[in-house]
């Protein structure tokens, strides 16, 4: 039952979940905020891509850019509303959870009121070609495009985090906020960068997932849940852990769909995560981390 088709589906899902989970994971560890508005960012970016597709129907680049830019803008807006006024108040974690949840609910209703409940399709930006790998394994262009573009953007983000000065500042803030302040890193400006970059990741994920699904006001709910659980299983804050968890959960989802049927996907995924967290409370990232605080 586990054939080439399942593996292709698993890799596609893993790359998209990787985008979502890393966004949630970076925001949690650098800003201390569980960003519940991530799903709204995702949905809004879908509409941004759709809007771009209306203006430039033949340009795949415009659709991608529309999604990524909208995601980055919405991310920065969430930062301005939920992070800046709250980050130095007591109980910031709970307050920001409530604030981002409120943004998510209000934003979803705003999308519903503006664009209506009818779902919108995005153009097939990667075309409709299919590539035969073996006799019974066929990779469609949208899956190949999803994997390649998410891997490329992830590598770009990780390289930027690793080599740039801003990336160094973000990693410093992820590991010790007080230490970061003591080397002159401003929480607020860094937060904008973090939220814009993770918003852009959500935007790309929105465009990629909308190759298979549709753009709708509620499109962000499932990606938010998947992103959260992947980030949790990976150990919140661990980029490598989130990537491994994304692969595990992508494979679980593809295999469950093929063997048991699509309605069991969430059950097996949650069972796997509960198992991981029972054995390793810090998630997969806890296995990789050899350092001590």
């Amino acid at each position: 039952m586990i054939d080439g088709y399942v593996i292709v589906a698993a890799i596609t899902l893993a790359s998209i979940y990787g985008l979502l989970a890393i966004g949630i994971s970076i925001v949690w560890s650098s800003l201390g905020m569980l960003n519940m508005a991530f799903g709204f960012t995702f949905a809004a970016a879908g509409y941004g891509a759709w809007f771009a597709a209306q203006q430039f129907p033949d340009s795949a680049a415009a659709v991608l850019a529309g999604g990524i830019l909208t995601g980055a803008l919405v991310g920065a807006a969430v930062c301005a509303v939920a992070f800046l006024p709250l980050h130095d108040k007591p109980n910031f974690t709970v307050r920001s959870l409530v604030a981002t949840l409120a943004i998510s609910l209000l934003g979803t209703q705003a999308l519903l009121a503006t664009f209506g409940p009818r779902v919108k399709p995005l153009p097939k930006i990667f075309g409709l070609k299919a590539f035969e790998i073996t006799e019974d394994v066929v990779v469609t262009a949208d899956k190949l495009g999803a994997v390649v573009s998410s891997v490329v953007l992830l590598l770009l983000v990780l390289a930027w985090m690793k080599t740039s000065r801003r990336g160094l500042e973000i990693r410093a803030m992820m590991q010790n906020p007080e230490g970061a302040a003591l080397v002159g890193i401003g929480v607020r400006s860094t937060a904008f960068a973090v939220m814009a970059v993770t918003g852009a990741l959500a935007g790309l994920a929105a465009v990629l997932l909308s190759q298979t699904y549709f753009v709708s006001p509620y499109a962000g709910l499932l990606p938010l849940i998947k992103g959260l659980i992947v980030a949790l299983a990976g150990g919140l804050g661990s980029v490598a852990g989130a990537l491994i968890a994304a692969c595990l959960l992508g494979f679980t989802e593809a295999a469950t769909s093929a063997v048991l049927g699509g309605q069991y996907v969430l059950i097996t995924q949650f069972a796997l995560i509960i198992a991981i967290l029972l054995v390793r409370p810090r998630g997969i990232g806890g296995l990789l981390d050899e350092t001590r605080e």
């Binding site: 590991q175 010790n176 007080e178 230490g179 302040a181 003591l182 002159g184 350092t291 001590r292």
Partner: peptide, 22 residues
């Protein structure tokens, strides 16, 4: 704090405030 630091304060704190993964 970051503004005060940029004005020329270097605080080497107790507990070192290190970034353990860097």
């Amino acid at each position: 704090t970051h503004r005060i630091v940029r004005r020329g304060l270097a605080l080497m704190p107790q507990g070192d405030a290190i970034f353990h993964g860097l």
